Amino acid sequence: MDDALQHVGPRLRAARTRRGWTLEDLAGRTAMSVSTLSRLESGKRQAGLELLLPLTRQLGISLDDLVRTAAPDPRVRRATMQRNGLAVTPLTPEGSPVAAWKITYPPGGSVERLRVHEGFEWLYVLSGKLRLRLGEQDLVLDRGEAAEFDTRVPHAMAASGPRPAQVLSIFDETGARMHTHSPDPI
Score class of each variant (00 low, 15 high):
residue 3 D to C: 11
residue 4 A to W: 06
residue 6 Q to G: 07
residue 9 G to Q: 01
residue 10 P to H: 12
residue 11 R to D: 09
residue 12 L to Q: 12
residue 13 R to M: 04
residue 13 R to L: 05
residue 13 R to F: 13
residue 18 R to K: 12
residue 21 W to N: 06
residue 21 W to C: 01
residue 23 L to Q: 07
residue 26 L to R: 00
residue 27 A to F: 01
residue 37 L to H: 05
residue 40 L to D: 00
residue 41 E to D: 12
residue 45 R to A: 08
residue 47 A to P: 13
residue 47 A to K: 05
residue 50 E to L: 07
residue 55 L to K: 05
residue 55 L to A: 09
residue 62 S to M: 01
residue 62 S to R: 10
residue 62 S to H: 06
residue 64 D to C: 12
residue 65 D to C: 07
residue 70 A to M: 08
residue 71 A to Y: 08
residue 74 P to I: 02
residue 75 R to G: 05
residue 75 R to E: 04
residue 78 R to T: 13
residue 79 A to P: 08
residue 79 A to Y: 04
residue 90 P to M: 12
residue 90 P to G: 11
residue 94 E to G: 15
residue 96 S to A: 15
residue 101 W to M: 15
residue 103 I to R: 10
residue 111 V to D: 04
residue 112 E to Q: 07
residue 118 E to V: 10
residue 119 G to K: 00
residue 122 W to I: 05
residue 124 Y to C: 03
residue 126 L to P: 12
residue 127 S to C: 02
residue 130 L to S: 05
residue 131 R to S: 08
residue 138 D to A: 04
residue 140 V to C: 06
residue 140 V to K: 03
residue 146 A to W: 01
residue 147 A to F: 00
residue 148 E to S: 15
residue 149 F to A: 15
residue 150 D to N: 15
residue 151 T to A: 13
residue 152 R to N: 08
residue 154 P to C: 10
residue 155 H to M: 01
residue 160 S to V: 00
residue 162 P to M: 04
residue 163 R to S: 15
residue 164 P to F: 04
residue 164 P to Q: 07
residue 165 A to Q: 08
residue 166 Q to T: 14
residue 167 V to F: 13
residue 167 V to Y: 11
residue 168 L to P: 11
residue 169 S to A: 15
residue 170 I to W: 00
residue 170 I to K: 03
residue 173 E to G: 11
residue 177 R to L: 06
residue 178 M to W: 11
residue 181 H to P: 11
residue 185 P to K: 07
